[in-house]
Design a protein around this nucleic acid. Structure first.
Lengths: 125, 125
DNA sequence: CTCATTTATCGTATATTTACGATATACGAT
DNA sequence: ATCGTATATCGTAAATATACGATAAATGAG
């Protein structure tokens, strides 16, 4: 069973994880960067700039669309993609918020319960 | 072939994608939040708080470790995990930097090449 | 030493992701 | 109407991710 137990979690958390997933591949981040730099780009333009087949690029675009980060507008036989500024901003603040929460506390090494000297094991650090 | 063509990309980009991947599952974000709130937690403590088997939790911990976001210290038969504050801060700034770049430009709908009216198709927005 | 506890790892099953080529569809041009 | 271009989707293969139970190793308690 590899079915994600996503439903058992806070929706905001699931959303954050979903956004992270959309960014979890170098090509997809690259696509976002290109779209930002060019204020939009046609699918074929992206294919020219990336070392991937057209169908693969289209698939990544689909994922970014599903995450809401980009939008596509039909321009004749082509489709022009551009960032969804709102969604990008929302994603930025969602992740910033997450990290803000995390950064409050670092690794204080939470009182390893008195002075018990650590033992030797594979040490998963 | 599902082999990620990750090697064909800028290392910083690959790193950012790797960080995002570590955050791409609700359980892993939850674990980070718990560790932040408690300033560290033993594996069994996390298992008690999560709806997953011990082995599954251990596996997620391994991924977070691999991403460098947490560290584990052996405490007797237990292992105490805590955030790696440095890595978390670095991750925060890496992703913040990414979004800063993206947010500069939104979706201006980049001059759909003059006034050609968009045609009708499945519209992938 | 023996036993219970804790955790990492192994083996396994299933689902998802990644990637490609082939194809169908939509459109503009001829 | 036909052709070429652009793109999304389909089918497929391989890799990876997700989850679990079982097990091994280490430790502390007795």
């Amino acid at each position: 069973m590899a079915q994600a137990k996503t439903s058992a979690f806070d929706p905001a958390l699931v959303r954050a994880a979903g956004l992270a997933k959309a960014l979890a591949h170098p090509v997809r981040i690259r696509i976002l960067e290109i779209l930002a730099a060019r204020r939009g780009c046609v699918c074929g333009g992206l294919v020219d700039l990336l070392p991937l087949a057209q169908s693969t690029v289209s698939q990544h675009l689909k994922e970014l669309r599903a995450a809401g980060l980009i939008r596509g507008e039909i321009d004749g036989p082509r489709t022009c993609y551009c960032l969804d500024a709102r969604a990008v901003a929302e994603a930025a603040s969602a992740l910033a918020g997450l990290f803000a929460r995390l950064c409050r506390e670092g690794c204080g090494r939470p009182a390893t319960r008195a002075g018990k000297p650590p033992h030797k094991r594979k040490d998963p650090s």
